[in-house]
C-alpha cells in the first residue's frame, strides 16, 4: 500500500467526518449489513462511536423509503435477520474481511480503520524489538549478525545470514558443543511473534525433548537473523538438528506468527529443500503450546531417519 494514497484517503475521510453531523432525526436503516463483529483482531477502537456516512441522495431515498415503509411486513425484517445470520456464519469461517458492507463505493469507516490498524501493527512488528524481560525469563543470551540496523536488515538479507565475528566467539565459548538439538531464537521479521509465543513454544518443546530423552544444547537469541543463519551455527557448534524459532513476515491477519525451521546437520551449502518448517504458530493458528509438543516428535523423526526436508520424505517412504 502506498503511503501517499493512504494519507490522502485518510485525509478525505477525516474531512468528511468533520463536515457532516450524524443525522438527528430517526433514521431509516439503509445499510443494515453492518458487521456486528469486525475482523477478529484485538480491536482497540471499540469505544469509538460508529459514524454513519450520509449517502448523497439520502433525502430522496428517505422519502421513497417512507412510502414503502408501511407496506413492509414483518416477514421482511425476519428475512433480513436471517440473511444477517447467514453472513455472520460466513464471517466466522474466515479471518478475511468479507461481508463488511460498504458506504457508496468505499469501505465503511470502521472497516477502513481496522485495516489501517492491522497494517500499522504489521509495520510495528517488523520495526519493533523483543523486550529484554522476555529473553531474561527464558535465560538466553543475545548475539548479533553482521547487520547494523533494521534498514540494512531488510536491504541485505545476506548479512542477516552471518554472525558477527564477536558473536561467533561468544557462542563457541558459551554453548555446549555438539548437542543433539540446538535451539536458536530470532526476531526475524516480527519481534511481536517472539514476544507473544516464544515462552509457550519453548517450554513445551523443552518438555517434549525431555520426555523423549533428547539432549538439548545451550539456547541463544540472535538479533536480526535470517533462517539460513542456521548453516553457520551448524558449522560452529555441530549439532545433529537445529531448530530455529523465528518471527514470520507479518500479514494483515496476524502480525505475531512464528515459524520453526528445522534442518538435520546444517552446514554451509545446505540446499533449501533439506530445511523443513512448521509455520503459522500463533493464537489464531497452531496453538504455541501444541506446536512445541509437536516439534519434539518431528525432531525424533529427523534423528531416526538422519535427514530433514525432502530427503526425509524420500527416506520415509
Amino acid at each position: 500500500m502506498e503511503k501517499e494514497l493512504i494519507a490522502s484517503i485518510t485525509k478525505l475521510v477525516i474531512e468528511k467526518l468533520n463536515q457532516e453531523q450524524p443525522p438527528k432525526e430517526p433514521e431509516v436503516a439503509l445499510w443494515s449489513a453492518s458487521p456486528k463483529n469486525p475482523a477478529p483482531v484485538e480491536a482497540t477502537e471499540q469505544n469509538l462511536e460508529r459514524i454513519e456516512l450520509k449517502p448523497v441522495r439520502q433525502e430522496a431515498i428517505q422519502r421513497k423509503e417512507q412510502k414503502t415503509h408501511q407496506s413492509r411486513t414483518c416477514s421482511d425484517s425476519l428475512k433480513l435477520e436471517k440473511k444477517e445470520q447467514q453472513l455472520e456464519e460466513l464471517r466466522q469461517k474466515t479471518p478475511s474481511r468479507i461481508a463488511v458492507g460498504r458506504a457508496g463505493s468505499r469501505p465503511k469507516t470502521n472497516t477502513w480503520l481496522q485495516f489501517r490498524y492491522d497494517h500499522a501493527a504489521a509495520v510495528d512488528a517488523v520495526y519493533g524489538e523483543v523486550s529484554a524481560d522476555v529473553l531474561e525469563n527464558l535465560g538466553v543470551f543475545t548475539v548479533h549478525t553482521r547487520v547494523e540496523d533494521k534498514e540494512e536488515y531488510i536491504r541485505r538479507p545476506d548479512r542477516g545470514r552471518q554472525l558477527s565475528d564477536e558473536s561467533r566467539k561468544i557462542i563457541k565459548d558459551r554453548c555446549q558443543n555438539s548437542p543433539t538439538v540446538q535451539v536458536v531464537i530470532s526476531n526475524g521479521l516480527s519481534a511481536k511473534a517472539v514476544e507473544a509465543n516464544i515462552e509457550d513454544v519453548y517450554l513445551s518443546l523443552q518438555q517434549s525433548l525431555n520426555n523423549l530423552k533428547i539432549d538439548m544444547g545451550t539456547t541463544f537469541y540472535v538479533d536480526k537473523g535470517r533462517v539460513a543463519l542456521m548453516d553457520e551455527i551448524g558449522e560452529i557448534l555441530t549439532p545433529d538438528v537445529v531448530i530455529m524459532l523465528i518471527g514470520e513476515r507479518p500479514g494483515l491477519v496476524s502480525a505475531e506468527s512464528l515459524s520453526a525451521y528445522m534442518c538435520y546437520k546444517p552446514r554451509k551449502g545446505v540446499i533449501e529443500a533439506d530445511r523443513m518448517v512448521v509455520s503459522n504458530i500463533h493464537k489464531g493458528g497452531i496453538p504455541p503450546v501444541e506446536a512445541g509438543a509437536y516439534l519434539g516428535t518431528i525432531v525424533q523423526k529427523i534423528l531416526k531417519y538422519q535427514a530433514s526436508g525432502v530427503s526425509l520424505v524420500q527416506k520415509e517412504s
Binding site: 513445551s204 518438555q207 525431555n210 496453538p287 503450546v289 501444541e290 512445541g292 509438543a293 509437536y294 519434539g296
Partner: peptide, 17 residues
C-alpha cells in the same frame, strides 16, 4: 475439543511417566 492433546499428554507424562 481444542487442539491441545499432545502438549497436555506430554505434560501428564512428564509428571507421572
Amino acid at each position: 475439543q481444542s487442539d491441545h492433546a499432545k502438549v497436555l499428554g506430554q505434560t501428564l507424562q512428564a509428571l507421572e511417566p
